[in-house]
Design a protein around this nucleic acid. Structure first.
Length: 495
RNA sequence: GCACGGAUGUCGGAGCGGUUACGUCGGGGAUUGCAAAUCCUCUUACCUGGGUUCAAAUCCCAGUCCGUGCUCCA
């Protein structure tokens, strides 16, 4: 089944065809490194990581470019506020960016260009746009004249230029400066005293935001490439500005074969924003929960739909994620040295329970692939993994001889690694799964007391003194300890 | 105002012409001294009004409500 994906420009799911066979050029707008990354960044780069992984798994050679915007108004503002050199600020945030993304198991892109390295090409493009009458110089910089290419307006948002001619809801003051028309956007900004600058034919200054991506994508891919991605909010004006700049400069259309935009993250039903005070940085989240659980929660939604982050969602994610890990762990434990038998034929209609289970699992794997081929529907793919988890659990606990049970364990291991591991990226490495859990310092602290109480409770239970046994359990509950009775005796953990 | 999405069971959220989503919650059962954990199992649904069709949650038209964008933003 062919891969289909939703293209923002055409506003529908279309079959994926690359510009050159077997190769994919993918450009995703990166972060402006003036601050730490937040939940929204996590969502965006996990979404494109998933796309990256699935394209690779489907046999494409993906050239993935993701930029850093390392100079802009906010970086300058932040640098002035903190008294820190802007270059130091930028380096620090880029370092943390990598750290955050690594913790979320996001595979690295192939290139991370920084816009300050491309100022010369930006100047070159701007000169060309001026020459072609698509741009003009004003007192405080150079602007792109949107009315010079009206047919390119609204390609991603469907807004007509006539509607916007009326004035965008009266909310454009403050961006006016000396440009001719409120729709025009800055290509080059004249520097104010004390700001970092680059020389240009229009005096000392720095590039506008939109031109950066144009210069970098042009440099890496040429006039056109396959996939352009980014957050939903970047459709306008950023991505439409890119279309204006690139297509007017190169004369080639379209700039990108497919435009992909990920949905936003809300917190408890509200838009995540600094003014609402519900801004979660990845650094903060990492202190509270396993980043792999966060990844699970984000992968457990379609990349285009908005996601409402809340306690319930994380709790569900925690539970379902550990269910998968548990089965993976028992599969790993079952992969012992020794003879491995051939597994019976996978056959849904078989009377042999193992054969039938293998048939079901094969079908689920197919469903997984079908889901991913359908506009990277990881939500559906996760559902298949969860269903398979149940089935794998069943298979792993079947009464089998040694050779068979090794084969089954290996099958389960591979099944999960090829789906939840390689594609969804939610499986930790075998080393991590098999590692002895690190001793919680809190646990060591109260262990003697808990063990003492548990011994008393076991004695009470042996004597069938149930009120006494339950009283001890209540006492343990007050310490925040939950008791689990197993055939091998009681175990305990923190609630 | 314009543009783009969405409306599904207690809830979160898939499906998008005929078939079990998945999970949570709730009911029943197994297990247990009782619980917890685990496993099995059950009920319940497609915003409103028209239309197309043998068949609509799914397609078309109209309406209502909600979200987002139109300004820096993943």
């Amino acid at each position: 089944m062919p891969l289909r994906l939703h293209d923002t420009r055409r506003r529908e799911k279309v079959e994926f065809k690359t510009q050159s066979p077997g190769k994919v050029g993918m450009y995703v707008c990166g972060v402006t490194v003036y601050d730490l990354c937040h939940l929204g960044h996590a969502r965006c780069y996990i979404a494109f990581d998933l796309i990256h992984r699935w394209l690779e798994a489907s046999g494409y050679d993906v050239d993935y470019v993701q930029n850093f915007t390392d100079i802009d108004d906010k970086i300058i503002k932040r640098s002035i506020e903190s008294g820190e050199d802007w270059k130091v600020l930028v380096e620090k945030n880029i370092e943390t960016y990598y750290e955050d993304m690594d913790s979320l198991n996001i595979l690295r892109a192939d290139h991370y260009p920084r816009c300050t390295e491309y100022v010369d090409s930006m100047i070159h493009i701007i000169e060309d746009l001026i020459q072609k009458d698509h741009a003009y110089t004003a007192e405080d910089g150079v602007y792109f004249h949107v009315e010079s290419a009206p047919d390119k307006y609204g390609q991603l948002t469907g807004q007509s230029i006539d509607a916007v001619r009326q004035g965008a809801g009266g909310r454009v003051q403050g961006t006016g400066d000396t440009k001719r028309d409120h729709k025009d956007f800055a290509l080059w900004k004249q520097a104010k005293p004390g700001e970092p600058t680059w020389p240009s034919p229009w005096g000392e200054g720095r590039p506008g935001w939109h031109i950066e991506c144009t210069a970098m994508s042009l440099d890496h891919f040429g006039v056109s490439f396959d996939i352009h991605g980014g957050g939903h909010d970047l459709r306008f004006p950023h991505h439409e500005a890119e279309i204006f700049q690139s297509e007017c400069h190169t004369g080639h259309s379209p700039l990108a074969g497919y435009w992909l935009h990920n949905g936003f993250v809300n917190i408890d039903g509200e838009k995540m924003s600094k003014s609402l005070g519900n801004f979660w940085t990845i650094q903060e989240i990492r202190k509270k929960i396993d980043p792999m659980v966060l990844r699970f929660a984000l992968v457990n939604a379609h990349y285009r739909s908005p996601i409402d982050m809340n306690e319930q969602l994380l709790k569900d994610a925690q539970r379902n994620h550990s269910r998968i890990i548990d089965v993976y762990a028992s599969a790993l434990h079952g992969c012992t040295e020794g003879q491995v038998h051939n597994l019976p034929m996978a056959d849904i209609t078989s009377m042999n329970p193992l054969s039938k289970s293998l048939g079901l699992l094969e079908k689920m794997a197919e469903g997984f692939a079908r889901a991913m081929d359908d506009d990277f529907n990881s939500r559906e793919a996760v559902a298949k993994v969860l269903a398979a988890t149940k089935e794998l659990q069943r298979v792993l606990s079947m009464e089998l001889d040694e050779g068979d049970s090794r084969a089954v364990a290996n099958y389960a291991k591979v099944w999960l690694e090829e789906t939840a591991g390689q594609i969804l990226g939610i499986l930790p490495s075998p080393e991590v799964v098999l590692a002895e859990p690190e001793e919680d310092p809190r646990r060591a602290e109260i262990a003697p007391k808990v063990d003492e109480l548990l011994a008393q409770r076991t004695a009470a239970r042996t004597n069938k003194d149930w009120p006494r046994a339950d009283a001890i359990r209540d006492e343990l509950a007050e310490l925040g300890v939950v008791v689990k009775d197993t055939p091998d005796g009681p175990t305990w953990d923190f609630a």
